[in-house]
Amino acid sequence: MKILKQSIGIDVSKSDFKVCLGVIDEQLETKNVYEQVYANDKKGINKFIKDMVSKTDLRIPVCFVMEATGVYHQQLAYALAAQQFCVVILLPNKAKSFSKSINIRAKSDVIDAKLLCQMGLERKLSPWQPPESLFATLKVLTREREALVLQRSKLKNQLHAYQTAFVKAEKTIARLKEHILYLTRQIRDAQTDRKALVKQSQPVAARINKITKVKGLSFLSVATILAETDGFNIILNQKQLVGYSGLDVQINQSGEKMTKGCITKKGNAHLRKALYMPALSACRTNPAMKLFYAQLNERQKAKKQGVIAVQRKLLLLTYSLWKTGQDYLEKCA
């Protein structure tokens, strides 16, 4: 039996990960040949890599397929990438869609590992590339700031409620004010760390400075876009970028029925959130975007659709300026 391809499905959890090694032969029949559980720590990962080297034929293509599980898969993914293995990291919705397509109704860690193994054998999957350390750190800082701002907003709402109440708890109000001041300092510190990080790379700092000349795009907005796209290293073209952001238009067509207008929202929510306020600002201050927004509103009643279109346009403009390294010329926009 000639083996054409090998796939290793990995279901990762906090303490361990389940492994399923499968092969596909020249008759296109799949077979699971090895299953095991390893501890999700340095010792367990080293043992797993050693076992896979002995149990697979390295002359035949082999890929390691896993789902993105917060941060628990990262140590394993980086260890495999360091050994020059082909690593595939899937979004959970892709694995779920594949499970539905082959009518899998049950769910467990072992079943998920087998499912990912089968998916690696039957589908052509894009390999994962480890992000640059600068953009990986920048993503942590931008998401930290986003979480801190959300916490502060909740506390401000609580403070307003306590201050408006007929019976006022003065000590509670004082503690809330103190907490809000603390979060404000944390947000300021995160901003300082982001700028210091970007300054470590002169080419990155120079390009960001060029992009922020676009009215509506601030340092924070551009930094978030770059962090969420790994400096556009994971993006091949504009169509993929729009899909990754979830700003692509959802089309529903059947027979004579044809509806469209809503965006899919199936992409990166952090990216969409980072572009919303810049789009509102650009609609007022950026001449090119203001004209574009006005033309859209002449054809449709829902003004939010125009704002979303400006979001998409700002994202693609950022992508073009980053890839080309050119200066932004407002008269040519």
Score class of each variant (00 low, 15 high):
residue 202 Q to C: 07
residue 212 T to Y: 04
residue 214 V to E: 00
residue 228 E to S: 05
residue 201 S to E: 03
residue 204 V to T: 11
residue 226 L to R: 02
residue 202 Q to K: 11
residue 213 K to Y: 08
residue 206 A to N: 14
residue 201 S to P: 06
residue 219 F to H: 14
residue 225 I to K: 00
residue 211 I to P: 01
residue 216 G to C: 08
residue 207 R to Y: 14
residue 221 S to A: 15
residue 226 L to D: 01
residue 214 V to G: 01
residue 206 A to L: 13
residue 227 A to T: 03
residue 214 V to Y: 03
residue 217 L to M: 09
residue 208 I to Y: 13
residue 209 N to E: 15
residue 204 V to P: 01
residue 218 S to D: 10
residue 201 S to Y: 11
residue 202 Q to M: 10
residue 204 V to Y: 07
residue 222 V to I: 14
residue 210 K to D: 05
residue 225 I to W: 01
residue 200 Q to V: 06
residue 211 I to D: 01
residue 215 K to H: 07
residue 217 L to C: 05
residue 223 A to T: 12
residue 222 V to H: 04
residue 230 D to R: 08
residue 206 A to M: 14
residue 203 P to Y: 14
residue 228 E to L: 09
residue 214 V to D: 00
residue 206 A to Y: 14
residue 217 L to G: 00
residue 207 R to I: 15
residue 210 K to L: 12
residue 221 S to M: 10
residue 218 S to I: 10
residue 217 L to S: 00
residue 216 G to P: 02
residue 226 L to K: 03
residue 218 S to Y: 09
residue 207 R to S: 13
residue 220 L to H: 14
residue 221 S to C: 15
residue 200 Q to G: 10
residue 215 K to Y: 11
residue 205 A to C: 12
residue 213 K to G: 04
residue 204 V to N: 04
residue 215 K to V: 09
residue 215 K to A: 07
residue 220 L to R: 11
residue 201 S to A: 09
residue 212 T to I: 14
residue 223 A to W: 03
residue 203 P to H: 13
residue 214 V to N: 01
residue 230 D to Y: 11
residue 200 Q to W: 08
residue 222 V to E: 02
residue 230 D to S: 08
residue 222 V to F: 09
residue 216 G to V: 05
residue 227 A to S: 07
residue 203 P to N: 10
residue 220 L to M: 14
residue 223 A to I: 06
residue 203 P to I: 10
residue 227 A to G: 02
residue 221 S to N: 13
residue 215 K to C: 06
residue 213 K to D: 04
residue 223 A to M: 07
residue 204 V to A: 08
residue 216 G to Q: 02
residue 228 E to R: 05
residue 229 T to W: 02
residue 229 T to A: 00
residue 207 R to W: 13
residue 228 E to G: 04
residue 215 K to M: 09
residue 222 V to L: 08
residue 226 L to A: 01
residue 211 I to G: 01
residue 203 P to E: 13
residue 226 L to T: 01
residue 224 T to C: 06
residue 212 T to Q: 06
residue 230 D to P: 07
residue 213 K to V: 08
residue 211 I to E: 02
residue 223 A to C: 13
residue 205 A to D: 08
residue 227 A to W: 04
residue 221 S to G: 07
residue 210 K to P: 04
residue 227 A to P: 02
residue 212 T to A: 05
residue 225 I to M: 04
residue 213 K to E: 09
residue 226 L to M: 09
residue 204 V to S: 05
residue 213 K to I: 10
residue 200 Q to M: 10
residue 228 E to N: 05
residue 210 K to R: 12
residue 224 T to W: 03
residue 213 K to N: 12
residue 228 E to H: 07
residue 219 F to I: 12
residue 214 V to L: 07
residue 202 Q to R: 12
residue 212 T to M: 07
residue 218 S to M: 10
residue 221 S to E: 03
residue 210 K to C: 06
residue 213 K to H: 11
residue 226 L to S: 00
residue 226 L to E: 01
residue 202 Q to I: 12
residue 206 A to I: 14
residue 225 I to A: 00
residue 225 I to D: 00
residue 221 S to Y: 10
residue 229 T to E: 00
residue 208 I to R: 07
residue 222 V to N: 02
residue 205 A to P: 05
residue 222 V to A: 06
residue 204 V to I: 15
residue 214 V to C: 04
residue 224 T to G: 02
residue 205 A to W: 11
residue 219 F to W: 15
residue 207 R to M: 15
residue 208 I to F: 13
residue 228 E to V: 06
residue 224 T to K: 02
residue 206 A to T: 15
residue 208 I to Q: 08
